[in-house]
Amino acid sequence: MSTSPKHAKTPTTAKNLKVGLVGWGAIGRVVGTALARGEVQGAELTCIVDNRPLGEAAPAAQVPFEEAIEACDLIVEAAGQGVVREWGERVLTSGTDLLIASTGALTDDELAKRLLAAGPGRVSFTGGAVGGLDLLQAVRSFAPLDEVRLTTTKLPSTLEQPWMDEELLERLRTATGPVEVMSGTARDVPVKFPKSTNVAASVALAVGDLDAVRVRVVADPGAELTRHVVEASGPHGEYRFEVAHRPDPGNPATSQVVPYAVLRSLSALAGRSGQIL
Results as ranks from 00 to 15, higher is better:
residue 119 G to K: 07
residue 121 G to C: 09
residue 122 R to G: 11
residue 122 R to H: 05
residue 122 R to A: 10
residue 125 F to R: 10
residue 125 F to E: 01
residue 127 G to D: 06
residue 127 G to N: 06
residue 128 G to M: 11
residue 128 G to Y: 00
residue 129 A to H: 11
residue 129 A to P: 00
residue 130 V to E: 00
residue 130 V to L: 05
residue 131 G to K: 10
residue 134 D to R: 15
residue 135 L to R: 10
residue 135 L to C: 01
residue 135 L to N: 02
residue 135 L to I: 08
residue 136 L to P: 00
residue 136 L to K: 02
residue 137 Q to M: 13
residue 137 Q to T: 11
residue 138 A to H: 11
residue 140 R to H: 11
residue 141 S to T: 08
residue 142 F to A: 12
residue 143 A to T: 06
residue 144 P to F: 05
residue 144 P to L: 07
residue 145 L to S: 02
residue 145 L to A: 06
residue 145 L to T: 01
residue 146 D to Q: 12
residue 148 V to F: 04
residue 149 R to C: 10
residue 149 R to H: 14
residue 151 T to S: 13
residue 153 T to A: 10
residue 155 L to N: 05
residue 156 P to D: 01
residue 157 S to V: 11
residue 157 S to A: 15
residue 159 L to Q: 02
residue 160 E to L: 13
residue 164 M to R: 07
residue 165 D to E: 07
residue 165 D to Q: 05
residue 167 E to W: 10
residue 167 E to M: 12
residue 168 L to A: 02
residue 169 L to S: 12
residue 169 L to N: 07
residue 169 L to H: 08
residue 170 E to G: 08
residue 171 R to D: 10
residue 174 T to Q: 13
residue 174 T to D: 05
residue 175 A to E: 06
residue 176 T to H: 14
residue 177 G to N: 12
residue 178 P to K: 10
residue 179 V to P: 03
residue 180 E to P: 03
residue 180 E to A: 12
residue 181 V to M: 09
residue 182 M to P: 00
residue 183 S to P: 02
residue 183 S to N: 11
residue 186 A to K: 09
residue 188 D to C: 08
residue 189 V to M: 04
residue 191 V to H: 10
residue 192 K to T: 06
residue 193 F to V: 04
residue 193 F to A: 06
residue 193 F to N: 00
residue 194 P to K: 13
residue 194 P to N: 10
residue 195 K to A: 13
residue 196 S to V: 09
residue 196 S to Q: 15
residue 196 S to T: 15
